[in-house]
Structure formats: structure tokens, C-alpha cells
């Protein structure tokens, strides 16, 4: 009974299940509540394609990729992949990246807490270079062959700087002081973001080229990312040592 009920819920093009059409209330409700959940998570994608299109798009997505978890903030994890593979939207390749960015923002809001590096003196900054560190649990890096971050921002601020069509953008999304934040990655950040995807020390990164002039740039970027709370110590610091 439950299996056929569940099957019928996901099929749209079914004949009437019951004579009063009351089963359709369940079929309809499933789609409406899930569309609303996606609308909450992907407001810029909705703005980009328009309300009607978003409705039609999410209907397809809901039927093909129904939720696997009862936590609705996790729904839509593969919406970006779905958009990439949806041929009618192939003229808008940035849509998937905007979706990735929006999903990352919701995940960042709910991600675990950690401690930040203290960077208020030269001594503490130098010490941090030898401490095992990782990316904050809220961090997502969205590498886009399009100006995805700028396009997303333009949905917020219609008068934003004109977009450069050929730009590629790598965006870092994370939670800073309880606010979800996003910024363009610096050219030298890619190496650091890759390195700290696993628990590592900064020292390990430069052990093979300690005297290279690029080290100074990397140190500056490391300090920037650590102050922003993007790179954080792996272990909870000893009381009084770091905040």
C-alpha cells in the first residue's frame, strides 16, 4: 500500500487514483512544499530564470531528485548538477554555479563552529605558521568559468558594476562572525585552499621552497585567510592562548 502510494506521489502523468481526486492533494502538496524549499535556498536562480520557469524547473527536479533527508535545508545539494545537465538551459552555463553558491551559503549558515587563529601580534602570526590548520567547516569554494559571484551579486544589487562576460571567478563562501560571507579568491589562494583542505601546517606547504620569493605572498594570503576565519586551527586551542 505504502509503496504504491509513494510511487504514485512522484508520478505526474497518472490517471486519477481515486474518484474524488483527493489523492492529488498529496501529489500537489509534495511538489508545492518542495518547490518552496528550493525557492528559499535558490532565490537568485529563481530571479535569473523567472518565477514560472523556476516552478516548471523545480517540478522536474522534484520528480527526478526527491529529497533523501528530512532536513529541508539539505535539499537541493545536486540542483546545480541537475542544471548543468539540463540541455534547454545550456545557454546559461553560469546558472549551475550560482546554484552552487546559493546552496553553499545555506550550508555555511548551519555548519559547525570552530575557533579562529589569533593574529593580533607578530608572534602569534608566526606561531600560526607551525600549527596544524584546516578550512573552516563552513567553507565552500566555487570555481566558475563564468563571473558567477558577480552574477549572483547583481541579483541583489541591480546597479552593481557591469559584468565582464569573459571573467572567470573563484568564490569562497563561509561563515564569519555568524554571518554568511562570500568573496572572490585571490590568485594565490588556490594553493592554500587545496593545501588546507586536509589538516596541515603552513610550514609543510613551503618546506620545499622556503626561500622562494613567492613565500612572502603566500604568508600574506595565509594571514588574510586566517583573519577572515577561512583557515582555522585543527584543534581547539589551549585556554587563553587563542580566542
Amino acid at each position: 500500500m505504502q509503496a504504491s502510494f509513494a510511487h504514485a506521489l512522484l508520478e505526474t502523468d497518472l490517471p486519477e487514483v481515486d474518484e474524488h481526486g483527493r489523492f492529488n492533494v498529496y501529489r500537489n502538496n509534495l511538489r508545492i512544499t518542495l518547490r518552496n524549499a528550493l525557492r528559499t535556498t535558490f532565490p537568485a536562480v529563481e530571479k535569473l530564470v523567472g518565477e514560472d520557469y523556476f516552478s516548471a524547473l523545480t517540478l522536474l527536479y522534484v520528480e527526478r531528485h526527491p529529497p533523501r533527508s528530512p532536513i529541508m535545508t539539505e535539499y537541493g545539494h545536486d540542483f546545480a548538477a541537475f542544471l548543468s545537465g539540463f540541455s534547454p538551459l545550456s545557454d546559461y552555463p553560469y546558472l549551475a554555479d550560482v546554484a552552487r553558491l546559493e546552496f553553499a551559503r545555506v550550508q555555511a549558515y548551519h555548519a559547525a563552529d570552530t575557533h579562529n587563529f589569533r593574529m593580533d601580534s607578530e608572534a602569534s602570526a608566526i606561531a600560526a605558521l607551525d600549527i596544524r590548520a584546516m578550512l573552516h567547516p563552513s567553507v565552500t569554494v566555487v570555481v566558475s568559468e563564468n563571473p558567477a559571484l558577480s552574477i549572483w551579486r547583481a541579483q541583489l544589487e541591480p546597479d552593481a558594476t557591469p559584468l565582464i562576460p569573459d571573467a572567470t571567478e573563484t568564490a569562497i563562501i563561509w561563515r564569519q562572525d555568524d554571518l554568511v560571507t562570500e568573496m572572490l579568491a585571490h590568485a594565490d589562494d588556490a594553493l592554500l585552499l587545496r593545501h588546507f583542505a586536509q589538516s596541515q601546517t603552513f610550514a609543510a606547504l613551503i618546506s620545499e621552497f622556503p626561500d622562494d620569493p613567492s613565500v612572502a605572498t603566500l604568508i600574506a594570503r595565509f594571514i588574510n585567510l586566517a583573519i577572515a576565519g577561512i583557515i582555522v586551527p585543527t584543534h581547539t586551542p589551549i585556554e587563553g592562548e587563542m580566542k
Binding site: R27, L48, V49, A154
Partner: peptide, 26 residues
């Protein structure tokens, strides 16, 4: 809502009408 037609159209046949029409695209 017994068929796709009842749900605001079909994404295979509709065209986007949002701000994406003014976004640059390579």
C-alpha cells in the same frame, strides 16, 4: 495538478523570462 500542464508549464518547452536574459554569456 494531475498533469505537468497544470503545474505552471513544462521546463522542456518554456523559456526563461528572468534577469538571465540580460546577463552576459560567453
Amino acid at each position: 495538478g494531475t498533469s505537468k500542464r497544470d503545474y505552471q508549464g513544462n521546463a522542456w518547452t518554456l523559456v526563461p523570462k528572468g534577469t538571465c536574459l540580460t546577463m552576459p554569456s560567453k
